[in-house]
């Protein structure tokens, strides 16, 4: 099956005012429908900026972004954020004054879904992330462990049944065991719901585990984008080679 491009970035540059070096430097990238694309690179390589360009939290200095073949500017950006993308944040960002239930269905409420629907959807999602609704619905974020919090974060991103999940180093702050569990959840999610996932990490083993394709970023450019086998077998640049080797502990 030939994969369709869901999102196309062409010649994207992003230069923040007052900075000499571009954060993104004439970067082009296609994201295919149903794939999981992992962006990996050191801090400051432009991963998060790239992710934020996708749902309009940042706008490119030059270049174009197309979503399903249409320019991003032709969409209602709020609608895009609510219904097309789900966002999972590195710092999780569950609202501390809202219960698990309220956190998950907040976007549903903003889009005026019926309370009955919201209730049902929240329970489905809690079931999916393996947190019993009876126990967790009315808990507050500070009554959850770190892993549970990020599960709820994932559930919140899934609430609107968005096509594409944007995950910005979601498991960076978690311990190894929990991280491994959650990575398995992501694989399950991808298989069960056929979501397109753009996933940021700086952990090469996480990238290898989750990515259909892996894009190695360095100084605002993509050094190499390919499957993990190719990345490992024939690294294009010394940076990629070094990253792969140190990451795998070779």
């Amino acid at each position: 099956m030939k994969n369709k491009n869901l999102i196309e970035l062409k010649n994207i540059s992003k230069i923040y005012p007052g900075r000499d070096i571009p954060t993104l430097d004439n970067l082009s990238l296609n994201i295919q429908e149903g794939e999981s694309l992992v962006l990996i690179g050191s801090s400051g390589s432009g991963k998060t900026t790239l992710l934020k360009l996708l749902n309009g939290l940042e706008t490119p200095t030059s270049g174009s972004i197309q979503i399903k073949g249409k320019d991003i500017n032709s969409y209602d950006i709020l609608d895009l954020r609510r219904s097309f993308f789900g966002y999972v944040f590195q710092k999780i960002g569950l609202f501390p004054h809202m219960t698990v239930k309220e956190n998950i269905n907040i976007v549903l409420r903003l889009t005026k879904k019926s309370p009955k629907f919201c209730e049902k959807r929240v329970c489905e999602l809690l079931d999916f992330i393996r947190l019993s609704p009876d126990l967790y619905l009315d808990r507050y974020p500070d009554e959850l462990s770190g892993g549970e919090q990020q599960r709820v974060g994932v559930a919140r991103a899934l609430a609107m049944d968005s096509e594409c999940l944007l995950m910005d180093e979601p498991f960076g702050a978690l311990d190894a065991v929990t991280r491994c569990e959650l990575q398995d959840e992501i694989i399950r999610l991808k298989e069960e719901f056929k979501k397109t996932i753009v996933f940021i990490t700086h952990d090469i083993s996480e990238a290898f585990k989750l990515g259909d394709r892996i894009a190695v970023m360095q100084k605002g450019k993509i050094e190499q984008i390919s499957s993990k086998e190719t990345l490992y077998g024939s690294p294009k640049t010394p940076f990629v080679e070094q990253l792969v080797q140190t990451g795998l502990g070779v």
């Binding site: 939290l57 609202f95 976007v107």
Partner: peptide, 15 residues
């Protein structure tokens, strides 16, 4: 983080 979360989830600024 909460402000970023709200923006990323598509809140209007009033919301």
């Amino acid at each position: 983080e909460y402000l970023e979360a709200a923006e990323g989830l598509g809140f209007l600024s009033f919301q």
